[in-house]
């Protein structure tokens, strides 16, 4: 094992060995440092940009989607409330209309019945009057006939 500290001394033909430290060491170190800078430029930076951009993109997309979902849910709730209101309004309208119709029906029925009663009453009065006058005429006729009979029988 040669000490790598003494490698600056004039090199005899190297005899090798497992622990043969020599100028390979600093050159390899320099090579790795250069590789670090090359990989930083070619690999770590661009891929890092790509990954972080994507992470940002995903995060913003997610938050946007969440916002939209919240908005949709808000709209849905609002529309549902409006629908419920509209249904209620329709129901009250229908109820009102039905009540009105019933009212109208009742009024019309009442009016018609009143008219019919009036007509019947009038007719009955007419009939009574006719009957009374007819009875009077009949009585008159009967009295005339009686008088006539008396006249014919008595003078004789």
């Amino acid at each position: 094992m040669t000490s790598w500290l003494s490698l600056a001394a004039t090199a005899p033909p190297p005899e090798g060995g497992l622990f043969d430290l020599n100028a390979t060491l600093p050159l390899m170190a320099v090579q790795v440092v250069i590789l670090t800078f090359i990989l930083n430029k070619l690999f770590f930076r661009p891929i890092g940009h790509a990954v972080e951009n994507r992470e940002g993109y995903v995060a913003t997309s997610r938050s946007q989607a969440k916002e939209r979902l919240a908005k949709v849910e808000r709209l849905e709730a609002e529309l549902k409330a409006r629908l419920r209101d509209a249904r209620q309004q329709a129901q009250t309208l229908i109820a009102e209309a039905e009540a009105e119709v019933r009212q109208l029906h009742r009024e019309a029925l009442g009016a018609a019945m009143a008219e019919a009663n009036a007509v019947r009453e009038a007719a009955r009065r007419d009939i009574d009057k006719e009957r009374a006058s007819a009875a009077e005429v009949l009585e008159q006729n009967a009295r005339d006939l009686g008088d006539l009979i008396v006249k014919r029988l008595l003078p004789a």
Partner: peptide
Amino acid sequence: DINTTVALALL
């Protein structure tokens, strides 16, 4: 090779 690993370790 020991040179490589020592180089990396010293880095």
